[in-house]
Design a protein around this nucleic acid. Structure first.
Lengths: 112, 112
DNA sequence: TAGTGGTGCTACTTATTTCGTAGCAAAACT
DNA sequence: AGTTTTGCTACGAAATAAGTAGCACCACTA
């Protein structure tokens, strides 16, 4: 399993179009969540693991490698943290929080 | 495998916080891609399959069910298409395209 | 009206990904 | 020196995704 990066073929697409690489990378379990958690503050390996409901260390390990290769996170004295690119990604993903609340309401009202 | 919906426990989180449900749902392979493709135009089952590099029908089938349950897509005369919620999701995800291009450039310049 | 082709699937097997647990080496703390 | 904490690796089991085959249901055509 290789890290999906733009400009090379990614899982589910041979085009190498950047957005497809994003879908591939973020479409893997935990990646969005990890970035989300790191958005709050830098965290250690075990800290991340705890925040992410005890995700298995093997997966966390591969995720960290992928996100590092993708230049979205860095390892520092303070633990793992978002890179500049990672921060800008979270910035563009921010509206998702508001959207999720609307979604919640819609589903709620539909099923009651 | 159940559809991750807000207000109930989702994979990787017992909190039921809406944003976690989003991560869970979109973190499954193909879901973002499917929405992305439907954003352009409504499509048939086989149309979607073709656009998504021949994804297996079994997975597409379960995805369609999940996205339908999540009220993000509907089935119509014209094929599958985004619901209002689905459209608003794609709207908030739109900036991702621009971001992906920046990302592309950064990775490119770093590795040359 | 028998044949052709497209569509929306289901069934089944295999491959890949993720989980869960155990454990270990290195650093930090007591 | 002994105990914790941290950052992992290993490995078997479970869940998810891929790949292929095929069938029922149209719509159209010869």
């Amino acid at each position: 399993m290789s890290t999906p990066l733009p400009n090379q073929a990614v899982r589910g697409s041979t085009s190498g179009v950047p957005i497809m690489a994003v879908f591939d990378l973020l479409g893997r379990k935990w990646n969005m969540r990890i970035l989300w958690e790191l958005n709050n503050k830098p965290m250690s390996f075990r800290g991340l693991q705890a925040r992410c409901d005890g995700m298995s260390p093997s997966v966390l390990n591969t995720r960290i490698k992928q996100l590092s290769e993708a230049k979205l996170i860095d390892k520092t004295e303070q633990g793992y943290q978002l890179s500049d690119m990672g921060q800008s990604l979270m910035l563009t993903l921010n509206p998702l929080r508001e959207w999720s609340h609307k979604w919640h309401k819609v589903l709620d009202s539909d099923y009651k």
